[in-house]
């Protein structure tokens, strides 16, 4: 049956956290080879980089407010001698 190709060792099991839950957990783990050979009571203790929960939040983005970034760039561009570095520059201005 083509649904299940051969098992490979490229996976991590995500453990069900409740006593009542059944025995399978699923996750898309994108090629990280981290095999957990743990007992039932042992939780995976290492923080896996793919556990990006908080990183998906707006305030965790490298540029979390593009409009404010552009406005600030413009303010400091017109008041200081140096500019750039964060994003590819847009248009200039004849700021006095």
């Amino acid at each position: 049956m083509s649904v299940f190709p051969s098992c490979q060792n490229r996976f991590t099991a995500v453990r069900c956290q409740t006593l009542l839950c059944r025995a399978i957990s699923a996750a898309c783990l994108l090629g990280l080879s981290a095999c957990s050979l743990t007992q039932d009571i042992v939780q995976v203790s290492e923080v896996k980089p793919w556990q990006r929960g908080a990183l998906a939040r707006d305030d965790m983005q490298v540029i979390n407010d593009a409009m404010e970034q552009a406005i600030d760039d413009h303010v400091y561009f017109s008041r200081e001698g140096s500019t750039g570095g964060v994003v590819v520059q847009g248009g200039g201005c004849g700021c006095n």
């Binding site: 996976f11 991590t12 025995a23 399978i24 957990s25 699923a26 039932d40």
Partner: peptide
């Protein structure tokens, strides 16, 4: 999808 069968 990587699916782990949890060992009991």
């Amino acid at each position: 999808w990587s699916v782990g069968i949890e060992s009991h």
